[in-house]
Nucleic acid binder design. Sequence first.
RNA 1: GGGCCGCUAGCUCAGUCCGGUAGAGCAACGCCCUUUUAAGGCGUGGGUCGAAGGUUCGAAUCCUUCGCGGCUCACCA
Length: 522
Amino acid sequence: MSETSDLHEQRKAKLEELRAAGINPYPSRYEVSHTIGALTTKYANLPGEELQHLREPFTIAGRLMAKRLMGKTLFGHLRDRTGSLQVYARHDTLGGDLFQRVRRFDVGDFLGCAGTLFKTRTGELTLAVERIELLSKTLRPLPEKWHGLRDVETRYRQRYLDLLMNPEVREVFVKRAAIIRAMREFMLARDFLEVETPMLQPIAGGAAAKPFVTHHNALNRRLFLRIAPELDLKRLVVGGLERVFEINRCFRNEGLSTEHNPEFTTLESYMAYADYADVMQLTEELLCHVAEQVLGALQFGSQGSNLDLTPPWRRITFEDALVEIGGFARDVLRDPARLEAAAAAHAIVKERGAFEAATAHAKLLAKVFEACVEPRLIQPTFVIDYPIALCPLAKASAANPEVAERFELFINGRELANAYSELNDPLEQRRRFVEQARQRSAGDEEAHAMDHDFVRALEYGLPPAGGLGIGIDRLVMLLTDSASIRDVIFFPQLKEEPRLGAELRGESAEAAWSNSDEHPHV
RNA sequence: GGGCCGCUAGCUCAGUCCGGUAGAGCAACGCCCUUUUAAGGCGUGGGUCGAAGGUUCGAAUCCUUCGCGGCUCACCA
């Protein structure tokens, strides 16, 4: 063995040894007879004597996660996607050469093992290895077996190690998949059609947000990554797809935080002949279905709160919430000057920009709401009837044209869903777009962009419809008790890792930074 | 962008207040050990202390700037 202490070099030397012995360290396939989970569920409870009568051969494959060399025997644990099983190799069974090779396998290597089952003195189901093969040689050591991988930065940058070493991380993502599956099943059962609409849009509409910009070479056209699928989904409803939903990504070119990732996943749905009250019903039923499927309960803890999703959920108007929960007097809320003073007392400042008086007032109300009401909405609460100026795509209430038929759902102090009765009056929609365009040209980068085709589509007729958007990442955070959105997204967006290329090439950091193939985009 | 905290061996961490030869456990390497399981025993190697400057006889430690990350405030749905 080489004398070097560099673990990476040591393993490369082992790799060469194997090749020199005529062994392919990266073979193509391995025939597996059982998953480890199948073996343990079937045989872990059988007494040892009965295991000895089993004549069928057991063949398993997995990653070596622990290795205990004991004289002329070796114990290890092999892990596959379904579980982990102890394997036991003996010098007298395998023969000298093979045993020598086996004892030099590293934790992390993928192995295929065939043999018989037995139980050790401590009663652990174990595979007595008769044949063993290397399936993939690792060149880097895994993080430590006992403490695992703790460094948060490494966990996010090298999620594969996080998944490998921290079982609870795997659980979160398994649960994420279960949540999405439950949502999909629920929507399909309600006769919604699952659709996919473009990620690349010529006009980034459907929400108030800054988009990512890109360019299509062949079309020589500027395109945006979508900030919402809303307008395309409503076009589909115009086209007669009366119930549609999409589970997919949105992109917003804004700040990052524990609740914001530049790309995030939403469920968005549209239901013809329904209004926002129907959608509230739908939302309640959907989230209860998900909680029951995934957690098996409507009560659960998350981030220190005990939450109860048992319907019906509280419904409160935007203004009542500001009065009852925010503690503001109703006449203060309705008077722009007094509201501004009250907001200033909470260190809330009015947004800059040339807004119409009603819009400026509504925007300030929204900020006050966010600061003084939102964090206090712990149990599921539908906040309804938002100022119309905040909702350029929502239908005004028949009873009160000042407010939109809109709700947002809050659980544990976070916005989880947003929905409204869709505005389907094309002329009114055009007026709203014109006002947004005016704000846009006055400097509001997040005002909605005019979308002439969308108005044209409405002119062909959109049935009354209730739309819904649910932030799936935040829902997953809620149901997995995660503090940060980065814990529920496999590869959260981070700054470029310094010196990575240098490490892999053995170059200096300076050389890495100046090496142009590191940055093909510049 | 502001504030606070972190960055030391492959991993997990001491050492920083109060400057004086860079440590431990796991992992690795060698030897012993044929039912172990954080196996055990004996031995060995392993570090640009995130980077660059500065102060000092002397810096992981003090100062400055920068990088990356976390939390938080601001901004932002």
